[in-house]
Amino acid sequence: MIDRSLYTPPYVQIEASLAAEAVAWPDGTVPFHSEAAVASRFQVSRMTARRALQGLVERGLLRRARGLGSFVTAPKLVEAFTPTMQVHRAWRTLGLDVEMRVLRFEYLHPGEDACRKLELRRNAKVLYMRRLRLLAGAPIALDDRFIPPAIAKAAKLVRADLAGSILDALWRAGPLSHADWEIEARAADQEEAALLAMSPGAPVLSRNMAYTRLDGGVAGIGTSIHRADRMRYALTLPLHTPGSGEPASATPEVVDADSKEIQAG
């Protein structure tokens, strides 16, 4: 409902609420809420409802079809895996309304398993960072990161770093070598579902990661949980000729069936 004690205009409050619903809308072929439905639901005039819906059209979340109504246009976001992992910068370049909401930024004991992965003593404390990623006000991903205290200090990590690329911030502590990832589809638990505005058991994409420094030490570990209905992954891999370790030739090799000799085709 509208909070009339706020200075925020009613149509802005309605637009924010509807934007979250549009992002999570299950089917782009099903009409979105009509002006009449919005006006009745929020107890406002048709003009206010129309202005709120027009805001979603201008943000690219809705499209209008004459005689049919409004339809959600937001596609799944693509998280493209590249060496620089400039995902958030790419989203903002596209004009997407992306927000990073910091939930936790504190030193704590992460448990023996995390300490082992971070190559720390069993009772060590690490910097724990948790943030919620939102698109047009609706949650789409939950990020957890555990950073060794020496790395956090060397990188001069601060809460504001979570508004951008955490990987960029880690580079301040020294050069990184590579990242190891494990990706799986699974069901959201109670806590994840509550934070991502989903039903418990709904599908999510879980990405576990570990960043390794050039000297072989661990720079950090973590997990990113994405709503499976709002995200997809994209990855380009260089291909190599088997056994050579070299990129495949642009000119294919052809085997003559009679001579068995390999020729350049």
Rank of each mutant, 00 (worst) to 15 (best):
L56T: 00
V44Y: 08
M100W: 02
A49M: 10
C115V: 02
A90V: 07
Y107G: 06
P110I: 09
A65P: 00
L120V: 03
C115L: 12
T84D: 14
T93G: 12
D113A: 15
E58D: 15
F105P: 01
R89V: 09
V87N: 07
C115K: 02
G95K: 07
R41S: 13
M100T: 02
L118R: 00
M100I: 01
P110C: 12
L120W: 02
L53F: 06
L120K: 01
Q54V: 04
E119K: 11
D97T: 07
G67R: 02
S45A: 12
R63P: 04
Q43A: 15
R89N: 10
S45I: 08
F42E: 04
L62H: 01
R104Y: 06
R41K: 15
V102R: 01
H109C: 10
H88R: 14
G111V: 04
V98Y: 11
G60I: 10
R121G: 11
R121P: 03
V78E: 12
L94C: 06
A90D: 08
E106W: 13
R121N: 06
L94G: 10
R101A: 10
T82S: 14
F105D: 12
T84R: 13
R92H: 13
D97V: 04
T82L: 03
G55L: 12
E58L: 11
G69L: 08
N123T: 11
R89K: 15
Q54R: 15
R64F: 13
E58I: 04
P75A: 10
R51V: 12
R59T: 04
G111S: 08
E58C: 04
G69Y: 03
L120R: 02
V87E: 05
A52K: 00
A49V: 04
F105V: 03
L108S: 12
M100L: 06
G95M: 04
E112V: 13
L96A: 10
F81G: 00
S70I: 00
L94H: 14
F81R: 01
M85D: 09
V78Q: 01
K117W: 04
M47Y: 09
E106D: 10
P110Y: 10
E79N: 05
A80G: 08
F105T: 03
R104F: 08
M85I: 07
V102C: 06
C115P: 03
A49N: 04
L61H: 00
L68G: 02
P110L: 12
L56A: 03
F71P: 01
L120F: 03
A80D: 07
A114Y: 07
R51E: 13
T73F: 03
G95W: 06
E119T: 07
F71C: 05
K117L: 15
C115M: 15
M47K: 15
E119H: 09
R63A: 15
M85W: 12
R64V: 11
L61I: 05
G67K: 02
D97M: 10
R66C: 03
R64S: 15
